[in-house]
């Protein structure tokens, strides 16, 4: 049943998000043309500045809008009227939530990819060129490979973690009459609980770790082994919280669903 749910979740997100990405691509093309014209003719310098400004804002907004839209879809589909259909389908709550998590994660990652792609389409060779890219690449090569892998994994996990934390807040919030207000309150509570627990777990480890003491004294500043160790620990904690909030969401929507 998961594959069928995924099919509908991907379709439903695509219907709105693909047109948004296409319009953004169009804007990237327009930005490129106007910027190229501005290089040739002075008269285009004002519109080019204007369009470039909008372009930058849109690039930043693409992942944010995608994230907000996936959360809205979750709410609309499972807590509002559409929930009457979704929760009476003969499928497990786990499948319902998993399908939402997978489809949203894919779209958020896609939105990052599109943002970078549109940046190239819009202003490559105008604002930056191959020299700049090779500079970045050379910097990259000096960085520890494991470190890069851990950073990429952290980004992926944080995308999933942030969604699931909001799902859990919505699941807890829907038990009350004022679903939206309580979802926001639970969101703030869960956010702070996570932050406090992370600090409570990480701080003693740092104080007890002799390598960390050396690190803050500045004696081994480029020690990737140490940084990677902490990244790994933080990653482990994020995964732990993600799993905990995921299970909470499934359990609450299974045992305490309240579609009033």
């Amino acid at each position: 049943m998961l594959s069928k749910l995924l099919k509908y979740d991907f379709k439903s997100l695509s219907k709105i998000l693909i047109p948004v990405y296409l319009v953004s691509l169009l804007l990237a093309l327009v930005t490129r043309v106007i910027n190229m014209l501005a290089n040739q003719f002075n008269i285009f310098s004002v519109p080019s500045g204007f369009i470039s400004g909008i372009f930058v804002v849109v690039l930043i907004a693409i992942p944010i809008a995608t994230f907000i839209f996936t959360i809205l879809k979750f709410y609309q589909n499972l807590i509002k009227d559409e929930g009457y259909l979704m929760h009476t389908l003969p499928v497990s709550k786990n499948s319902l939530i998993l399908s939402k998590t997978i489809s949203s994660t894919v779209f958020i990652i896609l939105s990052f990819v599109f943002t970078i792609l549109f940046l190239f389409v819009g202003v490559y060779s105008l604002w930056f060129d191959s020299k700049f890219l090779s500079l970045i690449w050379n910097l990259f090569k000096q960085i520890d490979t494991l470190f890069i892998i851990l950073i990429l994994l952290s980004i992926l996990i944080s995308v999933i973690y942030n969604q699931v934390m909001i799902y859990a807040s919505i699941a807890l919030g829907q038990k009350h009459n004022n679903k939206v207000m309580y979802s926001v309150i639970y969101g703030l509570v869960l956010y702070n609980v996570t932050q406090i627990l992370s600090v409570v777990i990480l701080l003693p480890v740092m104080f007890l770790d002799p390598n960390y003491q050396k690190y803050i004294n500045g004696t081994s500043i480029s020690d990737f082994g140490l940084i990677n160790g902490y990244l790994l620990l933080a990653l482990f904690l994020s995964i732990l919280f993600t799993v905990a909030y995921y299970i909470l969401t499934v359990k609450v929507l299974d045992k305490r669903l309240n579609l009033e």
């Binding site: 929930g83 009457y84 929760h87 009476t88 669903l257 309240n258 579609l259």
Partner: peptide, 8 residues
């Protein structure tokens, strides 16, 4: 709604 598992 209780029969349909939408309320507990």
């Amino acid at each position: 709604k209780i029969i349909n598992d939408l309320l507990q």
